[in-house]
Write a protein that binds this DNA or RNA. Structure first.
Lengths: 341, 341
DNA sequence: TTGAAAGCGCTAACAT
DNA sequence: ATGTTAGCGCTTTCAA
């Protein structure tokens, strides 16, 4: 006599019953995986609509071995630099019919081993890994089991053939420094490095050195310090230079954040930017346009990087192949902090 | 004679076999759902480690009817204002052991009915819905089927008892306008409304009106226009006022974006801020500090709003109950655009 | 404290 | 063109 509790969720069986077909047919019209008579399909669709049915992702995933999810592993989600990337990734995933799962590692790059991995084959179809958010051993493991991964702003370790996306950092820096030398005649150009082992930073330095060399300006190690892509950290070396009376015409700050720090330090010491010292950055963060003076920098197609990362990842998931390397072009953005206008 | 293809994924059965126990026992040690002998548990854990096992989210979800995922539905993910919210949500979800799935509706609030809903009971355990990202009918439907939802910056429709989180918009605006009147003696204070039907905008206007009234300044409709929480849109009414020769001492821009637009329009017309016209915003976006002049505004605990939204959602998922309304305090941030200093 | 086994709601191979 | 059915890898009774 026990009443049958109605299932809290509508399942494919409910739809099938209502449409007077088998669950296989329902599955077919939903996934368009085999021909179904037009009239039958219409009945099924009607039933789906009337019942407000939506297939369970879990059941679907279990049966098909696909989650239809891509994961993003990153160190920090709200950095001004990262925001457009995320937007691009989300849009790209949505357009490809994938959901986007995000996880921040907050500095410590995925410390949890094995059992605690937040993302992987168990809950996603593939991963976009942002620079520094996953240890090499984990990356290697994922590669070994053939799990789709795309790297953002970081080359794969041990020359594993994992696709990666990054900017033309070197070319961008080169254009920037060329401008400083050729248009403004600056000779003593200081450089604020990014964090240790940061690839973007490395290539920007290469561009810097190449530009100096091309103009026969000797590389001066005393004009190079670490700004860490960070406002506060960048102020310190600038203050030190100022205190020591080091002479320079311009500062290439490594990125826009560091440029803000450099400008702050300079202005605090009573220097005018760009009259006394020019400052240039890299990234063309939203803020760059609003600074006083507006920042001359290098624009990178940040949103497109996010889009491209997911696009390649989806290709990898679907076809098993993707471009080994996507190098996005950078462009000089001349505003006033370099001395122009 | 066909060779048995080894399953590409390690399953609970592999772990069970290796540990010499049943799959039920493995499940028990993983989920701590029933007592297991210490020594047995150790063997199981060892097997898990050796096999690098990670339970399939799909199988787990199908069996337990939990996805362990919370969803975020929003209109725009990379707005300066939204970024810290996202960060707070991610951190909060991560700490609670939930994954975070995101979906942007790009203006059109979830147009897709029934079958195409991107998020809901079929793929998440609950949803954070940001203002304007979900139609009322959908919201009502979710409420009817008792699906956990928390609203951010939007009150529930039809007085449904859906928890929601927002700022003390009215109190913040009140403090801001009080400051303008009491400290600077401004009498003619213009107001740039946000988008139509935007609750934040509504309450900010209430605070504005209340402040005027408290100081016996008549409300003047000609000093109110729509800025739409948007730089470009905000410039238009300001330019119009200027053209018409409307007199005002200050502009309350509704939010920081509109404030930037207002400042731009003013400066373009040769007006000095704050000497000729003061401008104040709302939100205290990252940028506000760097503007010329630095923007006086109202700081809202944006990241905390994100944290709180997920916190309440997780409570709702786990216990079935959450606070009906969380009102986060706002604080005046005095910089220079109001005329201080 | 442990194991056996019945689902969870789908997909996909195989029939018809 | 459609139906039947065997899993997918877990959780969760129910027994032992």
């Amino acid at each position: 006599m026990a009443e049958q509790e109605p299932s809290p969720h509508i399942t494919i069986a409910d739809v099938a019953k209502r449409a007077g077909v088998s669950i296989a047919t329902v599955s077919r019209v939903i996934n368009q995986t085999a021909p179904v008579a037009a009239e039958t399909a219409a009945r099924v669709r009607a039933a789906i609509g009337e019942l407000n049915y939506r297939p369970s992702a879990a059941a679907k995933g279990l049966a098909s071995r696909k989650t239809n999810l891509v994961g993003l592993l990153t160190t920090e989600i709200s950095a001004p630099f990262f925001t457009p990337i995320l937007r691009g990734m989300e849009a790209s995933a949505r357009e490809a019919g994938f959901g986007l799962l995000i996880y921040c590692t907050q500095d410590e790059p995925s410390p949890a081993p094995g059992f605690h991995r937040p993302m992987g084959p168990h809950n996603t179809d593939g991963l976009v890994v942002f620079a520094g958010s996953l240890e090499e051993t984990e990356l290697t493991h994922l590669h070994e089991i053939d799990f789709p991964v795309v790297l953002l702003h970081q080359a794969p370790p041990n020359s594993l053939n994992i696709p990666y996306i990054t900017f033309e950092n070197k070319a961008g820096a080169r254009k920037l420094i060329d401008h400083l030398i050729e248009e403004h005649g600056y000779q003593r150009i200081a450089f604020l490095r990014g964090p240790e082992n940061h690839e973007d930073s490395y290539w920007r330095e290469m561009g810097y050195r190449e530009a100096l060399q091309a103009h026969e300006i000797p590389f001066d190690p005393t004009l190079v310090a670490t700004g860490g892509f960070n406002q506060e950290k960048a102020q310190i070396p600038v203050e030190k230079w100022l205190r020591r009376g080091v002479q320079f015409d311009a500062i290439f700050a490594g990125d826009d954040e560091a440029a803000i720090g450099a400008i702050t330090a300079l202005q605090r010491a009573g220097k005018r930017v760009p009259e006394d010292v020019a400052v240039v950055g890299f990234d063309d963060v939203h803020l760059a346009h609003y600074l006083m003076p507006p920042l001359t920098t290098v624009q990178a197609p940040v949103e497109q990087a996010g889009r491209e990362a997911v696009r390649q990842l989806v290709r990898l998931i679907r076809t098993g192949r993707a471009d080994e390397l996507v190098l996005l072009p950078t462009e000089l953005v001349i505003r006033r902090s370099c001395g122009c206008n």
